[in-house]
């Protein structure tokens, strides 16, 4: 993909720097504006992180490790982490501490009452709204699970084996046509949408960008490996039931079976992944490194918080009443 259009002075400075091969121009940052709701900052972060994933056709490869860009990104990441810690403080304060981390994590997820995008998609969404949802989700789903793979090299023993097991399934179990990102591209094409990587980045809401960026904020930083795995586990643990509803919604509005197939696959896959992620990865990690417990819980709460923002934005945009919380997450 090529560099996107900027959405403000910060993303403009980053994009100009990447395009021109020049150092980024200093931009006065208003630190009173939260990074989490600043689409200019989130697009700048997304573009900077993308250098570590597929990159851009119009950017020289070595800019991935440009010290000035890394410094700029580090500042945004620090602010985003601080905002997420602040936003999740109440949920974490109320989180159970039973001595059984797996049960505590499932309880934290079950206690969440964020808006349910899946319930709306299931029963009420128009065909156009379902297509809009699919386009938003593509920003993540075409690079599905990739941020978590960065964590593999930071783990060891049974925890590494458990994460590898999840990733192997996400990556199609040896069958490239079953890569989840490929299944999503198939789903987009069948729905008449563009399956090109990054095609819907220009339409991505700030909440969509923030949820996607959080995976990289945690996944690319060894210190935050506990949060990365908590985020991944919460994502898996809020997927099976919602994906069943989304698949039913896709079928209700008459979109093709290949579009629903991606979500049907996730009903079954994520019922497995949530158990492995919560019990073997998260609880396993904390058993080896007890001081990571707080960060694992933080990752779970951050995922729930970001998902509520993503769902809330779309439901508000459609004028939909908040849906009764069910299995929560959009997928």
């Amino acid at each position: 993909m090529n560099l996107p259009e900027p959405r403000g002075p910060l993303s403009a400075a980053v994009i100009a720097s990447l395009r021109g091969g020049t150092p980024p121009e200093a931009v006065a940052v208003d630190e009173q504006v939260p990074v989490l709701s600043d689409e200019d900052a989130q697009l700048a972060l997304w573009v900077l992180f993308e250098l570590h994933f597929r990159g851009f056709d119009d950017v020289a490869g070595d800019r991935e490790w440009d010290p000035a860009l890394l410094r700029l990104r580090g500042n945004l990441e620090a602010r985003m982490e601080a905002e997420l810690r602040e936003a999740t403080r109440p949920a974490l304060h109320a989180a159970p501490d039973s001595g059984d981390l797996a049960e505590d994590l499932f309880a934290l997820v079950a206690a969440d009452h964020g808006p349910s995008l899946a319930s709306y998609l299931h029963r009420h969404a128009t065909r156009e709204q379902v297509l809009e949802f699919l386009a938003q989700r593509s920003v993540y789903a075409l690079k599905e699970s990739d941020a978590h793979s960065f964590v593999l090299g930071r783990l060891d023993g049974p925890v590494k084996a458990a994460l590898a097991e999840i990733q192997y399934d996400e990556y199609g179990g040896g069958r490239p046509e079953r890569l989840h990102s490929t299944l999503y591209a198939d789903a987009l094409r069948a729905a008449g949408l563009d399956d090109t990587y990054g095609a819907y980045l220009p339409q991505a809401h700030v909440e969509t960008l923030a949820a996607n960026n959080a995976q990289a904020v945690f996944g690319l930083r060894r210190r935050l490996r506990g949060a990365a795995m908590g985020l991944m586990a919460a994502f898996e643990a809020t997927s099976s039931l919602p994906c069943r509803r989304i698949a039913a919604g896709i079928e209700r509005v008459g979109l093709p079976a290949a579009t629903a197939a991606y979500f049907h696959e996730h009903v079954e896959a994520d019922a497995v992944h949530e158990q492995v992620a919560v019990r073997d990865v998260c609880a396993g990690l904390v058993a080896r490194e007890p001081r990571l417990r707080a960060d694992v819980l933080f990752g779970v709460a951050a995922s729930l918080h970001l998902d509520a923002l993503v769902g809330g934005r779309m439901l508000a945009r459609w004028g939909a009443a908040p849906q009764v919380a069910d299995g929560r997450r959009s997928a």
């Binding site: 499932f106 099976s240 039931l241 069943r244 009903v267 079954e268 019922a271 949530e274 299995g327």
Partner: peptide, 11 residues
């Protein structure tokens, strides 16, 4: 989706 788990146990 027998015999596979689909998360219904949570409900």
């Amino acid at each position: 989706r027998p015999p596979w788990c689909d998360g219904t146990h949570k409900v």
